[in-house]
Write a protein that binds this DNA or RNA. Structure first.
Lengths: 261, 261
DNA sequence: GGATGTGTTCCACTCACCGGTACGCTCCGG
DNA sequence: CCGGAGCGTACCGGTGAGTGGAACACATCC
């Protein structure tokens, strides 16, 4: 990561044990295994403390200790999967994503917005899947993926504005970095219920996405997309299928949960 | 040696902040949202402390506070998905599970052993899926599922012995609760690389499973299964497909990671 | 050989954490 | 209308868990 725009971490707060613990857990972004020194560097916790807290986390089964560092344990994995909102979304969406995959045989994504990023909640792909930069639980900037553009288009006005005002990071030569162009695209997304991406996050990849809306049809709870290599994959030809799946999930979700939000 | 120490009863240790925090997080087993009083009841933490720690967890983005209680947040979900081992297993296995689903159109599971339970790491199912008792991140006893029997059959001798010595919980009239019979089944599993379940965890459901073995072909890192309703689903007819997928995952896994455990 | 990066242990200070106690609230049945 | 039960929240003095700097042991690499 570089200079980040992390909204999900409002306050590090390492003056308390809990703060340190969370900071340590949050330090695992891309690299799967981190040595103690790297943890100290990323979190700014004193070496002695980091050592002890990390050991405690291992004792509690949230971290594993390996010969060359620490890593998030399977206990952590298990805990995360119990998260209520994401789980019900996941369960309801899965059959639809499944259908979509069978129809297209390309990589299918389910993502939610967090801050100015999209988080990948589910990913379905076969052996010949396009080498997409997405990982389960991973993040990508909103503005450079189809999934993100859908979420951004339906986002609260202040988030949309904040993203547009900040400099748009260029991921590839084709990434949309002109705010004006992006705004026009977003408006089109709201209009059509579809967003496209042409090699804007990774060269060789393109993508269609559609929003999963709440019961009122206003806010986007999540979004789904289909991704494929630029050669064999024509996003337009799967647009209707993606949109159909998205509305299917939306209505099912609305039917199941008439109470939460 | 990978023989882990994780017991079915994870030591809470609530004499430290971190212990309390973990205890609170671990309290979320089945119910998605728990009121403070219930948390106090389950963990045994003093009300005052529970209140404060829970509030801290909310501040750190690991819990959400709703009108009627707390729940694991999406931040927790995100964190969990970053767990190294499970993620790479998940990513590698996914295409194979996908194939399996397309071939069978029945519910496909990927699970790992933890203590005397199996934890479901992945679950693929369509709209018409059998109402299985499994949930993503959920647990079931090893002895009453096909997935569990596979894992148990390849488990370290002491775990196997420990499970067999303890009384085997009866889930349905057909659950195998006789240790002698279970031993014979487990031996057959090692022999054939396949385990079956006939309405042993839930009436109306049956299941085939096969192990994902490590590079040496001894220990089971995980297992996969196909589950279907007793009426239309004949587990034997999918046995070879399941086993083929399992060995496919095993070899791919061995090829990718020659270093980690 | 020193210089640099690690992980680990030790220990006296101190402030974050503790939990009993008390208060306000909403829902009950009487 | 009122008591009581169960809930969430707030307060606060005492104290021991947590702190982090310093010192140590071990691998590398010039």
């Amino acid at each position: 990561m570089s200079a980040d725009g992390r909204e999900g971490a409002p306050a590090p707060a390492l003056d308390t044990v809990l703060g340190k613990a969370v900071a340590l857990l949050r330090a695992f972004t891309d690299d799967p295994v981190l040595p103690l020194a790297e943890l100290v560097r990323r979190t700014g916790i004193a070496k002695g403390s980091a050592h002890r807290v990390a050991a405690d986390l291992v004792a509690h089964g949230l971290l594993d200790k390996t010969p060359d560092g620490y890593r998030l344990s399977s206990g952590m994995f298990e805990l995360g999967l119990r998260a209520a909102v994401e789980r019900s979304l996941h369960e309801i969406a899965m059959p639809f994503l499944q259908d979509l995959y069978e129809r297209t045989h390309e990589t299918v994504h389910l993502g939610v917005a967090d801050g100015s990023d999209v988080i990948y909640v589910a990913k379905i792909g076969g052996h010949r899947q396009a080498r997409s930069p997405s990982r389960l639980g991973g993040r990508m900037p909103l503005h450079c993926t189809a999934l993100g553009k859908v979420l951004l288009a339906h986002a609260a006005p202040d988030l949309r504005q904040r993203v547009l005002e900040a400099p748009l990071e260029r991921r590839t030569p084709r990434t949309v970095v002109a705010p004006g162009l992006l705004v026009r695209q977003l408006d089109a997304v709201v209009e059509t219920g579809l967003a496209y991406e042409h090699e804007e996050s990774r060269l060789g990849l393109c993508c269609v996405a559609s929003p999963i809306l709440d019961a009122h049809g206003h806010d986007a709870l999540a979004a789904i997309s289909v991704t494929g290599p630029i050669g064999r994959f024509r996003p337009e030809s799967h647009a209707t299928a993606v949109r159909a799946a998205a509305t299917g999930i939306s209505t099912t979700l609305a039917r199941v949960a008439g109470e939460a939000t």
